[in-house]
Simulated scan of single mutants.
Amino acid sequence: MMLRRSGVETSRFTAGSVRSAAVSKAKAMAVPIACIMARAGWSQESTFARYYDRPLTEVGDTFQDVILA
C-alpha cells in the first residue's frame, strides 16, 4: 500500500523496492541529488542512476482525497 501511495507501479515493483521508491520520490519532489546521496551513503551519483532512479506513476486515492479535502 505504501509503495502505491508513493507513486510506485506495484504490478512491477515489490516490497524489496522500498529504497528505490523512497529515493525516486525524493528526486521527484526536487530533493537535491547531493542530499539523497548523503542520506543513502552513496559517493557516486551513478549508483543512484543505475540502481535506484525508477519511474514513478501518479496514483490517486479517491478515498484519501475526499477525506482530506
Results as ranks from 00 to 15, higher is better:
residue 37 M to A: 05
residue 7 G to S: 04
residue 12 R to I: 05
residue 20 S to E: 15
residue 57 T to N: 14
residue 10 T to K: 10
residue 28 A to W: 04
residue 31 V to S: 07
residue 21 A to R: 00
residue 36 I to D: 02
residue 41 G to W: 07
residue 35 C to V: 15
residue 55 P to V: 03
residue 21 A to P: 03
residue 52 Y to V: 06
residue 59 V to F: 07
residue 48 F to K: 05
residue 26 A to M: 15
residue 33 I to R: 13
residue 52 Y to T: 05
residue 12 R to M: 08
residue 13 F to N: 03
residue 42 W to R: 00
residue 32 P to Q: 06
residue 60 G to L: 14
residue 61 D to S: 08
residue 17 S to M: 00
residue 59 V to P: 00
residue 18 V to L: 14
residue 12 R to W: 03
residue 38 A to Y: 11
residue 64 Q to Y: 14
residue 25 K to L: 15
residue 31 V to I: 14
residue 37 M to R: 03
residue 19 R to Y: 06
residue 32 P to F: 01
residue 41 G to T: 04
residue 38 A to D: 14
residue 53 D to E: 14
residue 27 K to Q: 12
residue 28 A to Y: 05
residue 29 M to R: 11
residue 56 L to A: 11
residue 4 R to L: 10
residue 64 Q to V: 12
residue 43 S to Q: 08
residue 59 V to Q: 06
residue 44 Q to K: 14
residue 26 A to V: 09
residue 37 M to P: 00
residue 59 V to G: 00
residue 61 D to H: 12
residue 57 T to A: 15
residue 9 E to Q: 12
residue 35 C to W: 11
residue 26 A to C: 13
residue 7 G to A: 02
residue 32 P to S: 07
residue 45 E to N: 09
residue 50 R to H: 08
residue 51 Y to I: 07
residue 15 A to I: 05
residue 15 A to S: 10
residue 43 S to W: 04
residue 7 G to T: 03
residue 23 V to P: 03
residue 9 E to Y: 09
residue 48 F to M: 07
residue 29 M to N: 12
residue 21 A to F: 00
residue 45 E to C: 09
residue 57 T to E: 15
residue 3 L to V: 05
residue 51 Y to C: 08
residue 53 D to T: 05
residue 23 V to M: 15
residue 34 A to K: 15
residue 62 T to F: 14
residue 38 A to T: 12
residue 16 G to V: 01
residue 42 W to C: 02
residue 30 A to E: 15
residue 44 Q to I: 00
residue 9 E to A: 13
residue 32 P to K: 09
residue 24 S to I: 02
residue 37 M to E: 04
residue 54 R to W: 01
residue 6 S to R: 03
residue 10 T to E: 14
residue 25 K to W: 08
residue 16 G to R: 07
residue 19 R to S: 11
